[in-house]
Amino acid sequence: MWRPCATIDETYAQDIAIVRTRRNWIGLIVALAAIFLLPLSGSYYLISFINSLGITIIAILGLQIVSGYCGQISFGQAAFMAVGAYLSAILTLKTGLSFWFAMPLAGFLTAIFGLIGGAPSLRIKGFYLAVATIAIHFVTMWLILHLKITGATAGLHPQPPQIGSFTFDTDERMYYLIVPIMLLMTYAARNIVRTRVGRAFVAIRDNDLAAQVMGINLFYYKMLAFFISCFYAGVAGSLWAHWTQVVHPEQFTLLHALWYVGMLIVGGMGSIPGVFFGAIFIRVLDGLVLFSSPYLSGWFPWLGQAPAAALGVMAFGLVLVLFLVREPRGLAHRWEIIKASARLYPFAH
């Protein structure tokens, strides 16, 4: 919303534009070009890292809408992602639907499933709801493990997406599918949260009773928040299924859901750029721990052979505690401060 001095809107179109100034446009075009050209020079590791990061970001965007904007903390995002992944795999494998229909359909059906998940939010809120979503996670994963159609512990093996004879079977090819979808979903989220619906979400987050008194239909908007959030989760799950080409209950544990919420906290609740900050920060931190763990276990033999997973979780928990105690508004708040001071430069205030 903030612009340099003497940038004045003359039309409504200018007033509601997301990309405002010439400098913004240049930055956007350079960034898009860089994203487009990255696979040409990047390593295999980088590309697969970005793919998994992109899928995570789609899932967390949904979580940001329901938790960061609507204030309903959900630890169920991993389970909803699992539902999306399984639905997409079943739709393509059992009914022979193409990926291009299965993905939106999986997102839509997951969103409908999410309405069941969101139902407790009508009676309870705060940590009661958070624990209820943990319960929903376990019940969902139990159902997935015990239904015939999901292949139980063996999992499912969906095919990679195809256009004609072109198959998205390598990481570079999937990159050109995942990243555009991620950008599209980000754009959609950015717009959802500044419409009437988004403002209603924020009102519910800040005080649901006051929101209700002002005439916001709590039932409708809470359900809508879960619907949108689970649509994101479903799409993310579908992409995950067709990228890794294996769907297994072990890929969607409670720990994953906890990581997602943690990424939101680090990035900043109630901010779309915060999703990117949080996901990238935590993933890079995790990568660093993974990278350094062989050295660490060399220097400190008492750590054991493969401390990477445990150390990663520890580092994550420590970072979370530090953020919650020192910077509860997350990296997005820092980013706003940096932007404000850059705008005012060379003045201090």
Binding site: I73, G126, F127, A130, L258, V261, G262, I265, L303, G304, P307, A309, A310, L311, G312, V313, M314, A315, F316, G317, L318, L320, V321, L324, V325, P328
Partner: peptide
């Protein structure tokens, strides 16, 4: 601070100690 922040902090402590426990 809001009580919910404290709840999330106990969740962060859970994660930290989970790693330490595995370790």
């Amino acid at each position: 601070q809001p009580l919910f922040t404290a709840f999330l902090t106990t969740f962060a402590i859970f994660m930290f100690m989970d790693g330490a426990f595995q370790l």
